[in-house]
Amino acid sequence: MTAQALVIDVREDNFAAAVLEESKRRPVVVDFWAPWCGPCRALGPVLEKLAEEMAGAFLLAKVNSDENPELSRSFQVRGIPAVKAFRDGKVVDEFTGALPESAVRKFLEGIVPPPGDDLRQAALAAMEAGREDEAERLFHEALAANPRNDAARLSLARLHSAQGRWEEVNADIAAMSPAFQLEDEVQALKALLEFSQAVQSAPPMAELERRLREAQGDERAQALYLHALRLLLQGQEEPAMEELLELVRDHRQYGDDLGRRTLLQIFTVLGARHPLVEKYRTRLARTLY
C-alpha cells in the first residue's frame, strides 16, 4: 500500500467522501493542524509514522484549519493540533495537543489494534500468570506479524529484564524506533540496563558491606553506590534510595554528583505515581537545598 493511501489532505469540498464515507469501511483519524503551529509540526510526523506502521488499518486525513475554517467550526475545534477519530461517520474519540508517541499509540490502538496486537495481549496475560516461556513465544509471534510493533518489543524487553537477560534487553531496545526509545518507559529500561552493567564487575555484597563499615572517602562512596544498585536490582527500592541519599549528603562530589543523578534515574524507573518517588524527591530536595 502506498503512502498516498495511508495519509491524505482533506478539504471542505471532499470531507464527506474522504472522511465520513471512508469511515464506514475503516477508521479515519483526522488531524486538524496549521503551518504556524509548533505542536502540530511535532505531532504530525508521529501520526504519519504510525499510519505507515499500521499499514492502512486506518486512514490519516489532514485538515489545514486555516484553509478550512468551516470544518474547524463544525467539529468544534478550539485548539490545535486537534485529532478526531471517525467510525461509521461519527467521532468516536479525540484529543487536543501534541502527545508523546506512546500516548498517540495507545489512542490509535483504542481505535484499531495494530497487526499482531492480539498476540501481544495474549503474551501479557501469559506473563501476568507466570507463564514466561509462553509469553516470550507470543511476543516473538507478535513481532513476526508486525516487526515495528514497539509496544510488543517493550513488553518483551521487560520480560527479559525481569529474568536478568540484560544483553537481550539491550538488543530489544536497539531494535525499537529512535522516537520510541525516547519514551519514559524505555528510558527506565535503559537505566536498569546501565545499573546492571555497573554491578557486573562489582565486589560481592559481603565485601561491599565490609567497605561500608570500614572504608572512608571515595572508597566508601563507591561501596555505597554499588551496594545501592545491587539492592535495587534485587527489588529493594527503598533501602537502595536511602543509601543513594546518603551518597548525596556525604559524598556530593563523587562521580560528578552520581548519587543525585542515579536517584533521578530511579524516579524514572519507578514512575511518577510510585509512593517512594514523591517521598524521596522531597527528601532529595531538602538534602540539596
Rank of each mutant, 00 (worst) to 15 (best):
R252C: 00
L143K: 06
L258M: 13
R148A: 14
E194I: 05
G97N: 06
D31K: 05
R158W: 01
L119W: 09
V46S: 02
S65T: 15
G130E: 02
V46G: 05
V83D: 06
R230K: 15
E132Y: 11
V30K: 04
A123W: 10
K49Q: 15
E94Y: 07
E185H: 07
Y225G: 00
R120V: 13
A135Q: 10
F75G: 07
F95E: 01
F32H: 00
A103I: 03
V199E: 03
L138E: 08
F195K: 11
A123T: 12
G79H: 05
L156E: 02
E132S: 12
R73P: 00
S102N: 09
G217Q: 02
E52M: 10
I266W: 13
G97Y: 09
G255A: 02
A55T: 13
F139P: 11
M127P: 00
M176L: 15
M1Y: 09
D9I: 03
V46E: 04
W33F: 11
K90S: 13
R281P: 01
D31I: 07
R41G: 01
I266S: 09
R26I: 07
V28P: 07
D133L: 11
R137N: 07
L156S: 02
A5W: 03
P69V: 11
L208R: 07
R220I: 02
F32N: 08
F95L: 06
K24F: 04
F180Y: 15
